[in-house]
C-alpha cells in the first residue's frame, strides 16, 4: 500500500514538472465505491448502496472464486490423467494442456462466448467463468502433475502394499502430500487468474475493469479510476497471498 502511494505521488510530481495539467478529482471516487441514496425511480429506497466500482469488484470476486474452484477440479482430474497408464487418456489430457496453454486467453474467451456460448446458450457470466476455468485448469493440471511426481514412489508402493486401490492411495496418501507441496505455485496461478479475469470485460461482463472503463468514459477521471481499480485488484490478490501463506504454515506442522 505504501509503495502504491509512493508511485502515485511520484507520478503526480513527474506530470506536474512536465507541465501536464490534470485536475485531480479524487473526491469523486468514494461514490463509485459506496453511496447513500436511491438508485432510480423503480428502486427509490434511500440506503447505503454499492457504487459501480464496488459492483465490478464483487463480480470480479465472484467470477474468480468460481473459476478457481473449477480450475482445481479440472486441474486435479487432468493432472492425474496426464500420468495415466492408458495412452488415450494421457494423449487427450496432454492435448488439452497444450491447446489451452498455447493459445491466447483473449481468443479463448471470444471462442467460448461467441461459438460455444451460442451453441449452449451460455450467459456472459457462464461463458467467462468457463473460459477462465478451462484456461487456469490447464496450468493447474501441470502443477498437480509435477506435485504428484514429486512424491517419492515408495509412498504409492507402501499404500498399495497395504491393499489400497490406486484411487484410495491417490486420495489418502499422494494427493494430500502433493497439494501441500504445490500451494506456492497454485497461489501464483490463482493470482494470475484474478488478474486475467479483467479480460472478460471484452464480452461485456460488468467486472471491475469493465465498470472502470465505463466510469472513465462517463467522467473522464481516468487516472483516479485506474489507480483505484489497480488498488482493488491488489486487495484481492494480496488477501489470497496472505491466505495461502497461512494455510502453508498450518500444513507445515507435520514437517
Amino acid at each position: 500500500m505504501g509503495i502504491l502511494a509512493i508511485i502515485m505521488a511520484s507520478a503526480y510530481y513527474f506530470f506536474s514538472r512536465r507541465g501536464i495539467t490534470y485536475i485531480w478529482h479524487w473526491e469523486r471516487i468514494p461514490e463509485m465505491l459506496f453511496y447513500y441514496g436511491s438508485k432510480s425511480a423503480d428502486d427509490p429506497t434511500v440506503r447505503l448502496r454499492m457504487g459501480v466500482l464496488m459492483m465490478g469488484f464483487m463480480l470480479t470476486l465472484k467470477i474468480s472464486v468460481f473459476s478457481i474452484f473449477f480450475a482445481i477440479i479440472i486441474g486435479t482430474i487432468v493432472g492425474i490423467a496426464r500420468l495415466s497408464q492408458e495412452p488415450v487418456t494421457r494423449g487427450l489430457s496432454l492435448s488439452y494442456v497444450e491447446l489451452i496453454r498455447n493459445t491466447p486467453l483473449l481468443v479463448q474467451i471470444y471462442i467460448i462466448y461467441f461459438f460455444v456460448g451460442t451453441l449452449l446458450r451460455l450467459s456472459a457470466f457462464e461463458a467467462g467463468t468457463a473460459a477462465l476455468s478451462i484456461f487456469a485448469g490447464a496450468y493447474v493440471a501441470e502443477i498437480v502433475r509435477a506435485g504428484i511426481q514429486s512424491i517419492h514412489k515408495g509412498q504409492m508402493e507402501a499404500a498399495r502394499s497395504l491393499g489400497m486401490s490406486y484411487a484410495k492411495a491417490m486420495r489418502h496418501i499422494i494427493l494430500p502430500q502433493a497439494f501441500k507441496r504445490i500451494i506456492p505455485p497454485l497461489a501464483g496461478q490463482f493470482i494470475s487468474l484474478i488478474k486475467d479475469s479483467s479480460l472478460v470485460s471484452v464480452i461485456a461482463l460488468a467486472d471491475l475493469t469493465f465498470q472502470g472503463m465505463q466510469a472513465v468514459a462517463r467522467t473522464y477521471h481516468t487516472f483516479e479510476i485506474y489507480f483505484t481499480i489497480a488498488f482493488l485488484y491488489l486487495v484481492m490478490t494480496f488477501t489470497l497471498s496472505m491466505a495461502t501463506q497461512y494455510i502453508e504454515r498450518r500444513l507445515a506442522i507435520s514437517d
Binding site: 517419492h152 515408495g154 509412498q155 508402493e157 507402501a158 499404500a159 496418501i173 494430500p176 502430500q177 501441500k180 507435520s254 514437517d255
Partner: peptide, 10 residues
C-alpha cells in the same frame, strides 16, 4: 521397506 515409507502427513 528399506526406507520405511511411513506417510509423513499422518
Amino acid at each position: 521397506f528399506q526406507l520405511f515409507n511411513l506417510f509423513p502427513h499422518k
